[in-house]
């Protein structure tokens, strides 16, 4: 922990000097614990801490940008910022429009959560965030898909009874299910569905140099175990380590 705080301080210093190349990283700020806006109004979360550390290792000067999820890829491609760290799963479809670094979270499970563990997820009304791999999975499963702009609206829809289940990253749903006092439970047999190729940082396809830098930084963090420490810190025991 102390090392990380030092890292942040060092980053602040180097930012002040303005020597390094500036990289703007976009995040959604509404997907705890991956990324969130904390009570001081600043971006925070696993990816923010990770991103700052990666930038330090790659000797880049990073700033954070908040952007809505549904326009996050198009704004990357129109060069409003240079990278995305927003819990974005690596998929074949997305690879056609952006380049991904190697994953910084191993392929994770998605899960269905619902008030009733016995709900049949292939016929129910299922809520998911718009243009996520989960939304696509639901659409292909034949279930009735309700799309929401933010993940917590999707969860809210289940609480209000508009949808019978919500489908999202398991890590995102864990605290919600645990703190719901039984109002939300995992759907039986549907609480661990591997989707995608893990979560990675998205970059423009033309930015090969930047991709190499971040890839190297991620490798170094995997090698010395700091990435696993970070995952354990933010995701607790449920987190999948390298």
């Amino acid at each position: 922990m102390n090392r990380l705080m030092l890292a942040a301080a060092a980053l602040a210093l180097s930012a002040g000097m303005g020597m390094a190349q500036t990289v703007r990283i976009a995040t959604e700020g509404a997907y705890p614990p991956y990324n969130l806006v904390n009570d001081a109004g600043e971006v925070d979360g696993f990816e923010v801490e990770l991103g700052n550390e990666l930038c330090k290792r790659a000797e880049l000067d990073c700033t954070w940008v908040k952007n809505d999820w549904d326009s996050i890829i198009s704004n990357l491609n129109s060069s409003n910022y240079d990278a995305i760290m927003a819990g974005m799963s690596i998929t074949e479809e997305r690879k056609q429009s952006v380049a991904f670094t190697q994953n910084y979270i191993p392929p994770t499970a998605s899960a269905y959560a619902a008030p009733d563990a016995g709900v049949d997820v292939t016929t129910a009304v299922v809520a998911a965030q718009i243009s996520t791999i989960q939304a696509q999975y639901v659409a292909e499963s034949g279930a009735r898909l309700l799309e929401f702009a933010t993940p917590d609206e999707a969860v809210g829809a289940v609480r209000d009874g508009q949808a019978e289940a919500v489908f999202a990253d398991r890590d995102f749903l864990v605290p919600i299910v645990n703190e719901s006092n039984g109002a939300m439970v995992w759907v039986e047999g549907q609480d661990n569905i591997p989707l995608g190729e893990g979560i990675g940082m998205a970059l423009r396809q033309s930015d090969t140099e930047l991709k190499a830098k971040f890839d190297a930084a991620i490798t170094s963090m995997k090698d010395d175990g700091t990435l696993n420490q970070l995952i354990s810190k933010w995701f607790g025991e449920e987190g999948v380590l390298y």
């Binding site: 700020g29 614990p33 969130l36 917590d152 609206e153 609480r159 605290p175």
Partner: peptide, 27 residues
């Protein structure tokens, strides 16, 4: 337009918060 205006903050603040935040509350 993606400007952080009152609607943005109202949605952000009003959304239900788990204990990952300092002030957990419902919707």
């Amino acid at each position: 337009l993606g400007v952080e205006d009152i609607v943005y903050w109202a949605r952000e603040l009003g959304a239900s918060k788990t204990s990952a935040y300092s002030y957990p509350h419902g919707d």
